[in-house]
Amino acid sequence: MMIPAAINLGLDLRVLAEAEGSPAALAATAVGDYRDLDTVLAFARDVDVVTFDHEHVPQHILEALLAAGVAVRPGPGALFHAQDKIVMRTRLDELGVPGPAWAAVRNISELEAFLAEHGGAAVLKTPRGGYDGKGVRVVRAAHEATDWFATVAESGIPGALLVEELVDFTRELAQLGARRPGGQAAYWPLAETVQRGGVCAEVVAPASGSAGALAAEARRIAELLADGLDITGTFAVELFETRDGRLLVNEMAMRPHNSGHWTQDGAITSQFEQHLRAVADLPLGATETRAPVTVMANILGGPETGTLEDRYPEAMAAFPDAKIHNYGKTPRPGRKVGHINVTGTEETAVRERARAVESVFLNRRD
């Protein structure tokens, strides 16, 4: 999704794809393992800046790129906080960023102690590698984590699991921003995210009732993180809004994020264009909205029969104002294979319209 933005900005975009036939094939100039140092160094030999669409590139490879004189944005120091949730929680506490109570637990007894102190229920996370509900589970008894502790022990790598209090929240929000190497930053309006089965299903921007103090607090938190972690590029801060009106940081991502896909059609500058501007150290674009409300609906799993493309004529005819984005991925249950953006003036109506378009692609008529 950065390809059209790169063309418009006059940037020569090159992609190291993980496999032949990947969705990035349009711009792929190399295929290889991002965990292999020689592969990455060879790919980066003729580029000015290396950036990422996920946070999993190992630290030693990032450091080797810097040693070879390649600009890495975001840099290894910043990206480490998105790679390891315990490192992130530790740094957020140092910065005074609000978050849930947490601990690094290395065995069943430490988890039992945390549960006893926090109402008998908690959220357990693997510090690395989790996304879209993977590597996250709610536990109400320590023995429910026996398999995860065994996996940590068998890996031979000293470590721990992250446990957090189970936050009583009213909704989930996301603050999207972007920052250049020199510190210039820009922020989009606060958005609401709706989860289904641990996966983001819908985003509404701006979030209803978010003007004023709530938006100001979300912006303050994002600025603390952007400057405190020295982030470069687009980033997202996922937040819980509690019943007493506080905001707590749940997760963060240092890349264009699913919560920001609405910006493609609902904002003056999309998160993908802004990311390229930021990592290329170009002036950032305006982030104002193009409509009072934009709703993004993820297409999860795809149609039961046929392909997404088979559904295009019906969706286009019934909803000519909807913007459809296809990832070119093979459908499977729960997988994000595309999304729809719909804009309008009234939130309820726009949400209903986005869900109706989604239903066409999922063969549903509910």
Rank of each mutant, 00 (worst) to 15 (best):
E110K: 05
E110Q: 14
A113N: 05
G119A: 13
G120I: 12
A122S: 10
A122P: 02
V123D: 06
L124R: 07
L124M: 13
K125G: 04
R128D: 12
G129A: 08
G130C: 13
G135H: 04
G135N: 05
V138W: 09
A145V: 06
A145E: 09
T146N: 14
W148F: 12
F149Y: 11
T151L: 15
T151S: 15
V152R: 13
S155I: 06
I157M: 14
A160E: 09
L162W: 06
L162G: 06
V163N: 05
D168Y: 01
T170I: 11
R171T: 07
E172D: 08
L173S: 04
A174G: 04
A178K: 00
G183M: 01
A186C: 13
Y187V: 04
A191L: 13
T193D: 07
V194F: 10
V194K: 06
G198R: 03
E202N: 02
V203C: 03
S210R: 01
G212N: 10
L214H: 10
A215M: 12
A216G: 10
E217L: 10
A218P: 04
E223Y: 00
L224R: 00
L224M: 12
L225F: 01
L229S: 01
L229K: 00
I231N: 00
G233E: 02
V237S: 01
L239H: 01
F240A: 04
F240W: 11
E241L: 14
R243S: 14
D244T: 15
